[in-house]
Simulated assay, not measured.
Amino acid sequence: MATFETRDGTTLFYKDWGPRDAQALVFHHGWPLSADDWDAQMLYFLDRGYRVIAHDRRGHGRSDQTDTGNDMDTYAQDVIDLARALDLRDAIHIGHSTGGGEVARYAARAEPGRIAKAVLIGAVPPVMARTDSNPDGIPLEVFDGFRAALAANRAQFFLDIPSGPFYGFNREGATVHQGLIQNWWRQGLAGGAKAHYDCIKAFSETDFTEDLKALTIPVLVIHGEDDQIVPIANSAHKAITLLRNGTLKVYPGLSHGLFATHPEVINPDLLAFVQA
């Protein structure tokens, strides 16, 4: 397995496919998944001559099951270390959900010349949780419920999420893909319970407002209109107003996991942005 060591000694797993001198696309997965969630995108872009990279966030997948450092600042620092280890130049970073927050924070702190563009898919920025400055956010009690469910029966919780709201399989008339549900469950249980527990706070309470404001690179914001996990009104519709060079693309009727359920729709749009 390909791994690298972050500056605090944590070992992270990553995939790195394709020509080393080709344009690099770096994929950032959501909670509580792994780099495997991007298989359809990585194979698509690899087939078109790109270098494709994806890492398992600390505490997730095949990376060290850390009990500390499970916060957005450390996640972004880990990406800085990854970019330095692979000497990435003018890379395009694509993040989903929690991974979208990771991309936003990393992009705001990246070393000069490391990042050229970013894509936020169903991403958590600016901030998910309800606060004084975000009064229409999701109540903290919802995320307390996530933590309680994870602590009580992580295996069942990680089956319920993809079976229902994550992919929109709870909607009337939805075509349910059992393989996606089982793959979500498989990825989730490969990671560490402590890191997954801590990450709920990281993805729900981190405020990315200043990160988004700081970005000057082109940013594509992709969101499903029927996203039940990260509601579009509290995320993409707000994020796009904070970006200096942002483009918003909304997909009517699609869910939080839209790139997995509809790769034939999302991948060509990603390609168009990458090539622009």
Rank of each mutant, 00 (worst) to 15 (best):
A195T: 06
H196C: 12
Y197H: 14
D198H: 14
D198Y: 11
K201S: 14
A202P: 04
A202E: 01
F203R: 07
F203W: 15
F203K: 07
S204T: 14
S204E: 08
E205L: 11
E205Q: 13
T206S: 14
T206I: 02
T206Y: 14
T206A: 12
D207N: 13
D207V: 05
D207E: 08
F208C: 00
F208L: 08
T209F: 07
T209Q: 07
T209N: 07
T209A: 08
E210K: 14
E210G: 06
E210P: 03
D211K: 07
D211N: 14
D211E: 15
L212D: 03
L212T: 06
L212M: 13
L212Y: 07
L212S: 05
L212C: 11
K213A: 13
K213L: 13
A214Q: 11
L215N: 06
L215W: 08
L215A: 11
L215F: 12
I217P: 02
I217T: 06
I217C: 10
P218Y: 02
V219L: 05
V219C: 03
V219M: 03
V219Q: 00
L220E: 03
L220Q: 10
L220P: 05
L220V: 11
V221F: 04
V221C: 08
I222Y: 00
G224M: 08
E225L: 12
E225K: 11
D226N: 09
D226I: 00
D227K: 09
Q228V: 04
V230S: 15
P231R: 11
P231V: 09
I232T: 09
I232L: 12
I232W: 03
A233Y: 10
A233Q: 15
N234E: 10
S235N: 15
A236R: 01
A236Q: 02
A239T: 15
A239L: 11
A239D: 10
A239C: 12
T241A: 11
T241I: 04
L242Y: 07
L242S: 08
L242K: 08
N245Y: 02
N245K: 03
N245W: 04
T247Q: 14
T247D: 10
L248W: 01
L248P: 00
L248K: 01
L248S: 02
K249Y: 04
K249F: 06
K249G: 00
K249H: 12
K249N: 05
V250C: 07
V250D: 01
V250T: 14
G253K: 06
G257H: 02
G257I: 02
L258H: 01
